[in-house]
Design a binder for these strands. Structure first.
Length: 800
RNA sequence: GCGGGUAUGGCGGAAUUGGUAGACGCGCUAGAUUCAGGUUCUAGUGAGGAUUCCUUCAUGAAGGUUCAAGUCCUUUUACCCGCACCA
């Protein structure tokens, strides 16, 4: 067969589309498979080969599942709200709607050329009214449930994007989008109370099948810690200073306290404090720094002692000084700590610098040199003296604290509430109305979607105000509760909103009564297998798990967890081994590869290049190797002789079918392809194969290289599509050879190999080995001290 | 600093989980075909030494356990990713 890939690929893509063979069926009686890939952000640059690899993994699994008779939902869509589009729109003076539509068209064209088996009737665009109506609807439900609140805080503000960013979006003190420096700014911010779901999000991990490191990252992100809240009396007041600690066992060693510079206690007792100016100066210094900068100065601790206030250690009545320092942050715990320099490195550094007492309460270290954080016997600790373990000491102390009424067990999370608004145009409008009499009122459900108004000038306003604030007709409205004049919220939602529930919409994407019907959700959810990038396993996955668990709690979805299984693909690096980026000029465009080698080659190569989960550099010459492989596959049509089984190939076929079948389940696509390459080498050695054997070969290769396989399938005279043909079975017995090659070792060194019957027993095998002329050389005249026989693998004779 | 990971030929990478290290592909060498060739086919290809079937050394480095270690243990180096004073 002549392998004219460009005409073959066009031909079959048209046929698939015409027959609609990849559309998920509404027949809910069939067994289902829901494979989900992260939908792309349709940027102006178009897709690069990394996208192709990201989708190829579950593309293979989905195609295999179809051939195994599953009803498969393998959808795609576009996460199209976002800053890059808006910035591009501003720069080129084109409406973001037009930019978005253009980019989606480009992405769609690229994806279709690769022959992905997506269900194109279920495409989602998060910026369409029919979609964001339900994004707003879920937000409103959260508002009703009290999960939405507003607070004035210091926020990370990007002066270049003119937008407030979450901590997650401003990591490293740089804007996630434009990489300019972040400044701190006081602002009214919308929050989603995700912390209320911290425990549920943590516990839910027990019932899902995520990669171990994905689970670990989510656990670390949530950051649950168990400890105690303790109230330290402030001397000569009725007030207490409340702290959080995970080491209440060390309380006898607390020699000072540290509070965050912003701690309200300073203002409250301003009249007693004699060095208020010094404190305020220090606070002003800290405010200039971003949170990131504050965390930079690891060793050299700074701080100021509060003159005029002092605290009382509740376990021994000792009076201890209070300091302010930026190593304690208002955002975690209570914004105040007890400092135990002997057993905490940060406190140790601070105490050394300020000449504060260091009292050892746990034996085992040398506190003259450094803090000791390990276990040991308690000393200088009153009723804890003599206790040998941390665990025991903590339990005893907690008992004491609660008996005295000065403290109790507590839990803290690193995870913070989710700052959920942007002062930008290209996002979902937040459906809230501010009424002077009623306060914050949700836009009535029947008025959703709250449409994003069309406008010409969508630059952000000065001071980071949303462009929507400029449209009077949008802002001015009546309060749905009291009917009085009111104003609309003008902020929009962050990009994370649309992607927090898209997997639900795929189940029933055209529904205009509900975000998805109960029947569709009941059938399709949860997602059976979700694959995507490691960069999304914390933020996106935790946000979307949060939304989903909320919907479960209000009875809108049938299962607690949205994703039954999660895997991740590795990056494709540029030919230079660097991360692909436009600025480095090392981006490979899938269209170029398809033009030159064909879609099937692109698909095979992205999966063959290395382990699916790890990064690997692009290599043009290796692409050619994959082309050569498919050329050899095409030529098999000229090697057919007869029907049935070629004896010399029978075992090889069963082995390969087994290996490919199993490797796909483990995402070991590279070795699956290698196995098919080996098989084709064997076929070439034999020189011919039967019509039936070629049919098997084509079916196991079909998920990887579907176009060429369809063409050969047709050449073989089959009716219907290879893509829907039954996945081949293997016979376990025929994967085992009659004879096995044993490695024969003397003293653990390989000396010869012997072909022996597969079910040979130990005695016979050893006799055969010892009778072998080569082995004889090594054992003659020596005494055999040990004989090892591993069935099917190795014979080892140990001699002296 | 803490947590996780990786390290195997000239290159990308295999290795049934403790059992013949280097599958498969690239690249390279030689030959045939073509001789317009980023064509196709055949053979070879970890390094060193003897060259006819022989042998020694090799999985970042150094030790150890074992009949047997890329795989397990200890120490160590380099790189990558995540988190960042979390009390």
């Amino acid at each position: 067969m002549k392998y004219d890939f460009s005409s073959i690929e066009k031909k079959w893509q048209d046929k698939w589309e015409e027959a609609g063979i990849f559309h998920a069926s509404d027949d809910h009686t069939k067994k289902k498979f829901y494979g989900l890939v992260e939908f792309p952000y349709p940027s102006g640059a178009g897709m690069h080969v990394g996208h192709i690899k990201a989708y190829s993994g579950l593309e293979i699994v989905s195609r295999k599942r179809r051939m195994q008779g599953y009803n498969v939902l393998f959808p795609i869509g576009f996460d199209a709200y976002g800053l890059p589009t808006e910035n591009y729109a501003i720069k080129t003076n084109t409406h973001p709607r037009i930019v978005t539509d253009r980019n989606i068209a480009k992405f769609t064209q690229q994806l279709k050329r690769v022959g992905f088996s997506f269900d194109w009737t279920r495409v989602i665009d998060t910026t369409e009214e029919g979609y964001y109506k339900w994004t707003q609807w879920i937000f409103r439900k959260m508002f009703d449930a009290g999960l939405v609140f507003r607070a004035t805080t210091l926020v990370n503000y990007c002066p270049s994007c003119k937008v407030v960013l979450s901590n997650e979006d401003s990591q490293g003190g740089k804007c996630d989008i434009c990489h300019s420096d972040i400044v701190q700014k006081s602002k009214d911010v919308w929050y989603l109370r995700i912390t209320e779901y911290a425990d549920k999000l943590l516990n839910g991990l027990e019932e899902v099948d995520y990669l171990p490191n994905v689970k670990l990252q989510q656990e670390n992100w949530i950051g649950r810690s168990e400890g105690a809240f303790v109230n330290f009396k402030i001397k000569d007041t009725d007030d207490t200073l409340r702290i959080y600690t995970t080491r209440c066992d060390t309380m006898f060693g607390a020699t000072f306290m540290v509070i965050a510079p912003e701690h309200p206690i300073i203002e409250k007792y301003a009249d007693r404090i004699s060095n208020l100016d010094a404190l305020n100066n220090y606070k002003a210094e800290c405010a200039k720094k971003t949170e990131f900068e504050r965390t930079q100065l690891v060793k050299d601790k700074t701080g100021v002692k509060i003159e005029g206030l002092c605290a009382v250690n509740p376990v021994n009545g000792k009076e201890i000084p209070i300091f302010i320092s930026d190593y304690v942050m208002m955002g975690y715990g209570t914004g105040a700590i007890m400092a135990v320099p002997a057993h905490d490195e940060r406190d140790y550094d601070f105490a050394k610098k300020f000449g504060i007492d260091i009292i050892e309460v746990i034996q085992g270290g040398d506190i003259s040199k450094e803090a000791y954080t390990g276990d040991g016997e308690m000393i200088n600790s009153g009723f804890l003296n003599g206790i040998k373990t941390k665990k025991e000491a903590i339990a005893k102390m907690l008992e004491f604290l609660s008996a005295q009424g000065v403290g109790e067990k507590g839990v803290q999370y690193k995870m913070k509430d989710w700052a959920f608004n942007r002062q930008r145009y290209w996002g979902e409008p937040i459906p809230i109305i501010h009424c002077p009499t009623c306060g914050m009122v949700g836009v009535p459900y029947e008025e959703l979607p709250l449409r994003l108004p069309d406008m010409e000038q969508f630059e952000p306003g000065e001071g980071g105000e949303s462009p929507l604030a400029k449209i009077d007709s949008f802002v001015n409205c009546t309060c749905p509760k009291c009917g009085g004049a009111a104003k609309r919220e003008t902020d929009t939602m962050p990009q994370w909103a649309g992607s927090s529930w898209y997997f639900l919409r795929y189940c029933d994407p055209h529904n205009d009564k509900e975000f998805a019907s109960k029947e569709a959700l009941q059938y399709w959810m949860p997602v059976d297998w979700y694959n995507g990038g490691m960069e999304h396993v914390t933020r996106h996955m935790i946000y979307s798990r949060f939304w989903h668990r909320f919907l479960y709690d209000i009875g809108e979805v049938p299962c607690e967890e949205p994703y039954a299984k999660r895997t991740a693909q590795g990056l494709i690096l540029g030919p230079d081994g660097e991360k692909m980026s436009k600025s480095k000029g090392n981006v490979v465009d899938p269209n170029d590869v398809v033009d030159e080698y064909g879609a099937d080659v692109l698909r095979v190569y992205t999966l063959f290049m290395g382990e699916y989960g790890s990064a690997a550099p692009w290599s043009e010459s290796s692409v050619r190797g994959c082309k050569r492989f498919l050329d050899r596959v095409a030529a098999l049509t000229d090697m057919i002789s007869g029907e049935g089984v070629t004896p010399k190939l029978e075992s090889a076929f069963h082995k390969t079918v087994k290996k490919v079948s199993m490797d796909i389940e483990d995402m070991k696509f590279n070795t699956a392809i290698a196995a098919m390459m080996s098989l084709i080498n064997e076929i070439y050695d034999v020189g011919s194969l039967t019509r039936d054997e070629l049919g098997i070969f084509v079916r196991i290769l079909c998920p990887f290289a579907p176009h060429i396989c369809e063409e050969i399938w047709e050449t073989l005279g089959n009716e219907g599509f290879a893509s829907l043909a039954a996945w081949p079975e293997w016979d376990e017995e025929k994967t085992v050879d009659a004879t096995v090659t044993y490695a024969v070792q003397v003293n653990g060194k390989l000396r010869n190999t012997l072909d022996l019957p597969k079910d040979i027993d130990k005695e016979t095998a050893l006799a055969a080995a010892k009778a072998d002329a080569k082995i004889k050389q090594f054992i003659d005249g020596k005494t055999v001290v040990k004989e090892i026989f591993v069935p099917g693998k190795i014979i080892n004779v140990v001699v002296k």
